[in-house]
Each structure stands twice: as structure tokens, then as C-alpha cells.
Design a protein around this nucleic acid. Structure first.
Lengths: 224, 224
DNA sequence: TTCCATCCGTGATATTCGTCACATATACTT
DNA sequence: AAGTATATGTGACGAATATCACGGATGGAA
């Protein structure tokens, strides 16, 4: 396949799952890995399909989402460097419950499920990291359920912004530009409503617009 | 502790995680297991705590839930025989994100996290089953997020009922009595609204009340 | 029995929020 | 530059749903 290449052990070593492995083992693992580069907007996994690959994000980012029959979208999460996807099918053999689409040009490391299963079996550390990752995602999902069930759109926007922000010299900042459409799809609200809420957050001095679509969250924001 | 007892290998063998293990290994595992019997309404895990046990439900059932600061509750799931909980803290060392309360008198098998980690390390099958379980729960959580984001209360009630139902001689039946209050807490709606929707489902002939609070779902229900 | 804790049904009312309908943007392509 | 697709702001309106306020039922437990 023209877009599949060999993967170096050095590239693999940047992935958290493989942290701490001996060089010899990394080389062995790299022998079973492929690499795939996708442009923006390419669906790598489609809901409903049965596929048998496990992917890791080497750089770039992917959207995990689902569309209902009317074409309405829910974005479960946006994942970046180091994240894994496609491993759930390996664990319970069910068809894919969500689609995964590249949010920008992205490099992926690919294993066959059988190969990765063997890697997990022979490296308990890797196994633990994969499990830890699943646990974290389950926590995040439960938190999302909680906010959908208990909070209004205002609160859900605020919570999402806080979750997306990283501290940058004292301030809580969202670096990556994110469209209001996507925010809406992440919190189960309409684009228009998100628009109005954001306007209000800015008017109340809780959020500031930085350059390049960056957002700065001010202190009172933490109250949410 | 007065409510902790030894566990027989036979009891352990009824748990799906340990299916297929040799008797000798089961005995060894049983040596590290404790048993705890709880009455209805006992909180075994509290959100926010850091605890270091892993539990399996031997019989009975438990509610996994969270309360916000105003006391409003969200029920993530109700788990029964064979289910595991408390394993997430073992995997990522974060404090408990949810509380787990017995929904009836229930018997639990208890391991320390360290012991269970060792069991997983020495039995890859057990490890895989635990991962498969996490994957299934993550799918369920995503499905719940989807319905909260896209469906109205009517649709969410219908979907929950379908999820709870089991086929009993041709009919789709919900055996266990479930209160409308709990349904409301499971789908992020008000008790009153659930009451009205259920009334309507019955009026439209989609659902029938059986004895003992059982519910029978009629065919047109599947349209949801 | 009587008490107490849940659970349930229902009407009236208030509010949140989605939808529709626009006019603009903004950005990438050709 | 023109063209096309996608993202955005905003007002008006109506539908979905929470909340409030009851009265009643139900089921143990004392």
C-alpha cells in the first residue's frame, strides 16, 4: 500500500504506551508496525465496520464522533499525540461504535490486532498502559454524561473550555482553534446557542479572545 | 472485620473473569480474595475517595452513580452478577469518579488492588477479560452520551427500556422492577417527565404492565 | 394499627433551548 | 478576482422540558 511505510523504533519511543521498553524490544515491535499519513478529513475508522487494526497517533489529531441517521453529529472527543484507537474491537470483537476522522494532516502508527495482542501479552507494561488509557476515557465519558444530565448549556460550555485549557505562564489558555460548531457537537447543543453563550462569557469578562482563535480563560471561570 | 469471609474457589468460578482457569489457580486466587455481604443501600465506594480494593458482584446488584453538590443524582449504570468495579483506581491511581451503592442485599468478592494486579500479570486471560469489560462499558457510555446529545426524553426512555429488556419466550420483557425515579436519573430527565412519557407509551400500546412491576415491550417499540 | 419514607400522577407555569431565516464573514481553490 | 464551502452573529418564535405544588398510593417497621 503506497501510504504505508516502515516505522522506526525512535518514532515508536515517542508513544507513551511504549515508554520504558528496552531498545531491542522496541526494534522487534517496530517490525510489526506500519505507518500511515492521512490528510485532513479522512475517515480512518467508520462506525459499524469490522476492522482489525489498532492505531496510535504519532502527531496531528483525530476526531472521534458519530452521526445519527439525520446526519447530526456528536463528537465524543478529539485525540492527539500518543492516543490509541481501534483497540476496543480487539478486546470485544464488536463492530466499531464510532468513526474516527483526521482533524488535520496526521501520522498514524498501525498494528494488526493480532500483532498488538501479542505485544500486550509479552509486555505487561504495555497492557497496563492500554488499560489505564481505557480507564481514563471511561472517566471522561462518565463526566460528560454527568454534565449532559445535570448542567445547562452555559455550564457545559464553561466546563468544556476548562477541560480544553492548559496553563500557559499563569493563564489558562486554549491554544488550538476550535470552531463553535465543534463545541456545539461536543456538548450536545446548537451552534447558535454556543454562539450566544460565548458572547456572554466574553461580555462578562470570563473569557478573552487571543490571536489565531486562541481563548484565554480568566480566573472567575474556575467557579464553574 | 466481621463482614469479611473467605471465598471458595467454586464461588470464584461463577465469575466470568475467572472462567476457564485451572482449579489449582482458582484455589491460589481464592486465597487472596475476601467476601463482603452488604444490605440494601450501603455505599461501598464513595466518589472522591482513594480506595485500594477491587470488587466483583457475586450476586445481587449495585448502582453506579454520582451526586452533584445540590444532591441531584445521575445513575451511570446498574450492575449485576459478574460485574467488576473499583478496578479503575488500580489502573490510573485517580480518586474514585463515582459512588457504588448496593441496590439490594448483595455479596461481593474483594481483592486488594496489589493482589489483583498480580493476578492479571500472571493470567493474561483475566487481564483480557477485564479489558474487554472496560471496552464494553466505554461503548455503553458513548451510546449514552449520544442519546443525551441527540434524542428527546421520549426517545431516551424508549432506548433505555429496550436496553434493559431481555427476550422471554418471544416477548421483550424487563423483569426487575425499576422505579420511574431511577429511570429519570439514568436518562437525565425529571421524574414527572418520565411519568408522562411512560403513560403515553402504555396508552399507545407500546408497553404493557406485567405483574410485580414487570414491563413488556411490544413489537412497534423496536422502531426506536 | 399508625407512622414514616418513598414513590407516583397530574395540572399549571416558567424557562431553556432548538429551529428558522437571514446577513455576513472567512478561507481556500482555481 | 471570482467562486465555493464553511463558519458566524442575531432576532423572533415555538416546542420541549423542568419546576412547583399538590393529593394519593404503597410498603415496610414500630
Amino acid at each position: 500500500m503506497s501510504n504505508k511505510h516502515a516505522v522506526s523504533a525512535t518514532a515508536l519511543s515517542t508513544l507513551p504506551v511504549f515508554q520504558g521498553l528496552e531498545a531491542a524490544h522496541l526494534d522487534e515491535i517496530a517490525r510489526h508496525a506500519g505507518m500511515r499519513r492521512v490528510a485532513r478529513g479522512v475517515p480512518v475508522v467508520r462506525a459499524g465496520e469490522v476492522m482489525d487494526n489498532v492505531y496510535f497517533v504519532l502527531n496531528g489529531s483525530m476526531k472521534v464522533l458519530i452521526c445519527d441517521e439525520d446526519g447530526r453529529e456528536v463528537i465524543f472527543t478529539i485525540i492527539g499525540q500518543g492516543a490509541v484507537f481501534g483497540e476496543m474491537g480487539m478486546l470485544d470483537a464488536a463492530p466499531r461504535s464510532a468513526s474516527v476522522v483526521s482533524a488535520m494532516a496526521t501520522d498514524l502508527v498501525v498494528f494488526s490486532q493480532a500483532d498488538f495482542l501479542h505485544i500486550m501479552k509479552t509486555h505487561f507494561d504495555v497492557c497496563l498502559r492500554v488499560m489505564g488509557n481505557l480507564a481514563q476515557r471511561l472517566r471522561d465519558a462518565d463526566r460528560k454524561i454527568e454534565s449532559l444530565a445535570l448542567m445547562d448549556v452555559y455550564g457545559r460550555v464553561a466546563r468544556l473550555l476548562l477541560d480544553l485549557a492548559e496553563p500557559v505562564d499563569g493563564k489558562n489558555v486554549i491554544r488550538k482553534k476550535i470552531s463553535k460548531q465543534d463545541i456545539a457537537k461536543m456538548i450536545g447543543a446548537s451552534r447558535e446557542m454556543v454562539s450566544r453563550v460565548m458572547k456572554d462569557l466574553i461580555a462578562r469578562g470570563l473569557v478573552e479572545e487571543g490571536g489565531q482563535g486562541q481563548l484565554v480563560l480568566l480566573e472567575p471561570m474556575d467557579a464553574f
